[in-house]
Design a protein around this nucleic acid. Structure first.
Lengths: 358, 358
DNA sequence: GCACCGTTTGACAGCGCTGTCCATTCAGGC
DNA sequence: GCCTGAATGGACAGCGCTGTCAAACGGTGC
């Protein structure tokens, strides 16, 4: 390949000859215009005459030419890429990851593509500061964090990101003094809905299942909604109806079995996630309790499987599509200098057969 | 920010001052070496004295400097990125996507990270030639394709990729004359294992559930294994025991209900995926058939939920971890000019309670 | 003291693109 | 015919890095 201008490799182009890894200069030589004009034409600049533009674009298409993103990115100081970081703090067992994330990933990549952005995906345990690097190295213009697991453990990261001036948005976990943008479902409202539904069916002894500590702000918020609903109904909330479980099906199973063994009476159960609800329903079934007659169960998330467990699970749906699209729209807005803010999405009660009137 | 050499913005550096978006030149000025030396030091070149290297790296760390990937990529003509394209041809309902993919994604991103590569994720319906662009635009050095759905529909894409000299590897779908590299589970062997297991339990009327047409080469291969196992046992395979279903739980449910209504007798069922098996088990239960007594069921994939359905599902496990890591290792090998080849992974029979002796 | 050599560093070009500034062209008005 | 201004395209610099080549440096042996 000659690169001496004037004897450029593509000058001798004709309909037959193809250039192997064409650059905009090759296209320019073939089209008989300057390289700058090619650049403009391909970005649909109004500065080039439509006929010229079309001719150039046609040649580019024929030669399978695409703008070199490294060069463009170097020049413009942006990558048109957002990094999607999935924090996996459940202990590293991939098989247990909430399939919810996969749907989200789909909506995120598609709506990012629609806005001209690529998505760099990463799933890791928390190590030191790998996440700061994405923006500093110009690989991504902004970050979306899908935190899953222990909030306390990654709160430090949020502070580090904020300190490094990184543009980021976090899904779900929202604590009052948290830096950066966030988007999540209105967990308080969701918890309220779930509990109010059980109350509406005449249930009075409603247990809550999950880790509602500060480690999981979203679960804690669901608990707040639960308490508020009880309060609205004029009921005290009974601390003995709190069942702790890590967010896995197995742990929920164990916890509910143990709770049943303890003999505490209850007629309703609000599990802070569907995975927990499903584990709980197995435990109830294995202990000979009828769902929904003896105990009515409400979950949270509306996993695909929620509709197929036995009985089908009443749950609170997070609008995954809105969430994914909202995350992208917000982070892109932040990148492009618009005025954006954190927001919450409305949860929705999905009624199925795991709840019944007393 | 002054960029005139000699009055460079970072020249006046002292322990307190920090540069905002440092470049290697800033580091050089501060360290009192040339920019080239900084570049070398950060890549651990043996050409720089260890003390100099350490000093430079320390400064870089302090200033939160990271190599600009666009600039490096422009210079070296590579991006150290692989694109992961998830073909979604199931009709676009994200909720039904196989959670299998999510685990895979985890292994892929982690092993890519371990080899110094980032992963660009994309989930799309098939459009024209978007996937060719990744390499041509220097956004990715190679592609991993996780095809899901209709093979016929994306076979055209594989040919286009091959024609454009794109480096790619496809997971799962393997047809004899297919271009490019592939890695998948040995589906014939898996189908054989599943069927042989049922035969070993005394089952003789074994139905097969799924779309085993050429649209799904991996399912067709599982069917081949099924036929081979029957053959090994001296049994004819009975075409009336083929139950067609799209790869969703609901469709499997409907198909099996219809099959039961048709009155064809059977005592074993090999579902070509776990999702199908789960739908089938619901259908059997709702029709009053006992699993495993009346009908023993084997699935394929070993989804996380397979262990938690009722009864727990006997299935063929694809080693997702090996698969994810193998895909990355192979595509990186291809990118870096090593001698790599397509390969198949050994499936494994996971025995649970959905099968029993007759 | 000097030529020689290995080690370490610096100077420099240029990867392919975009944005700025300048040159050319042409239509229309005088 | 000449001037003006809009429309169109070209020249050029430089984004931040890496690889090549050459220079400087500090021993070593004669």
């Amino acid at each position: 390949m000659l690169n001496t201008y004037g004897i450029h490799r593509a000058v001798a182009y004709n309909a037959v000859m193809k250039v192997e890894n064409p650059t905009s200069r090759d296209i320019a030589d073939i089209a008989g215009v300057s390289q700058a004009t090619v650049s403009r034409a391909l970005r649909n600049s109004p500065l080039v005459r439509p006929e010229t533009r079309d001719r150039i674009q046609k040649i580019a298409r024929e030669l399978n030419y695409f703008v070199n993103r490294n060069a463009a990115g170097l020049r413009t100081h942006q990558s048109n890429t957002i990094a999607l970081l999935m924090f996996d703090e459940t202990g590293g067992d991939d098989a247990q990851i909430n399939p919810f994330f996969l749907s989200m990933l789909g909506y995120i990549t598609r709506s990012a593509a629609g806005m001209g952005y690529d998505v760099l995906a990463s799933m890791q345990q928390l190590t030191d500061d790998w996440h700061v690097e994405y923006q500093a190295s110009h690989r991504a213009d902004g970050l979306i964090l899908l935190g899953y697991g222990d909030y306390v453990a990654y709160r430090r990261k949020l502070d580090a990101l904020a300190a490094a001036n990184t543009r980021f948005i976090i899904y779900g976990a929202v604590a009052a003094d948290q830096p950066g943008l966030s988007l999540g479902c209105d967990n308080v409202r969701g918890g309220h809905m779930a509990t109010a539904h059980l109350l509406g069916l005449g249930r009075r002894r409603i247990a809550i299942l999950g880790d509602i500590s500060k480690r999981h702000p979203e679960f804690a918020a669901r608990h707040d909604g639960y308490v508020a609903a009880l309060d609205d109904a004029g009921l005290e909330h009974d601390e003995s109806l709190r069942i702790f479980a890590d967010n896995t099906e197995e742990d929920a199973y164990r916890a509910v079995r143990a709770f049943l063994d303890s003999g505490t009476g209850f007629d309703g159960l609000f599990a802070v996630t569907d995975m927990l609800a499903i584990g709980a329903m197995h435990a109830l079934a294995d202990a000979g309790r009828q769902v929904p007659q003896d105990v009515s169960v409400v979950g949270f998330d509306d996993l695909p499987r929620a509709a197929y467990v036995n009985p089908p699970l009443t749950t609170i749906q997070q609008n995954i599509r809105e969430a994914g699209e909202g995350l992208v729209k917000t982070i892109v807005g932040l990148i492009e200098g618009e005025d954006v803010a954190s927001s919450q999405l409305e949860p929705k009660l999905i009624v199925r057969q795991s709840c019944g009137a007393l």
